[in-house]
């Protein structure tokens, strides 16, 4: 099927319910992989992915087909993951960070060479859980889900420049951990 995600969404919005299956085929594995980076229980991940698709369908008519579908779907999944993590931990983190207040100079979206990226990804998978969630999330979305800063900004609802800053800090922290 050559249709883009957004074209499929328009069809679903117009009543072609069966097309939901195409979106599920395209995103089920990606979302499960994304969820497994935050939750160790695979049943929880399964439930969250299912709920994400259900919510996406329920709110399908709020989606603007002029925008990209994948950040929208990841945003829904992200919210469900955050809620799950919160319900599992007694400590509820205060969801505000000063790095969203100030403007930063935007760093390059893909400054690393492929070789460095692949090396970094290998190292990351070992040490990822040693990072704070606020650094872990943009790093996963950027390196594993191949999202742009713009898309990550939409998923995490943080300024685009903050995405760059967090990815840079995350890499610095990883380098420190590794060394």
């Amino acid at each position: 099927m050559d249709l883009s995600d957004e074209e499929i969404v328009v069809l679903i919005q117009n009543g072609e319910t069966e097309m939901v299956g195409v979106l599920i085929d395209r995103y089920e594995e990606k979302l499960k992989r994304y969820g497994r980076r935050f939750l160790s229980d695979s049943d929880d991940v399964e439930d969250i992915v299912q709920e994400a698709f259900v919510r996406a369908y329920t709110n399908m008519k709020s989606f603007d087909a002029n925008r990209k579908f994948s950040p929208w779907l990841y945003r829904i999944t992200h919210n469900l993951l955050v809620n799950k993590i919160r319900s599992k931990s007694r400590y509820i983190p205060f969801n505000f960070d000063t790095d969203t207040i100030w403007p930063y100079l935007q760093s390059d979206n893909s400054a690393d060479s492929e070789a460095i990226q692949s090396e970094l990804q290998n190292q990351m998978s070992v040490h990822l859980n040693e990072l704070d969630t606020k650094y872990k999330e943009p790093l996963i979305l950027f390196y594993y889900e191949s999202m742009s800063y713009e898309e990550i900004s939409e998923i995490l609802r943080i300024p685009v420049t903050t995405v760059g800053v967090r990815i840079k800090r995350a890499k610095d922290k990883l380098k420190k951990i590794i060394s």
Binding site: T17, Y57, N59, S62
Partner: peptide, 25 residues
Amino acid sequence: MDELKNKIIDRIKAGEVYMKPRWKF
């Protein structure tokens, strides 16, 4: 892998899951 897809489509067909109308948004 089709299990999840079938489950969701069945729920949609059963009317258990439905799209909220645009006017609500």
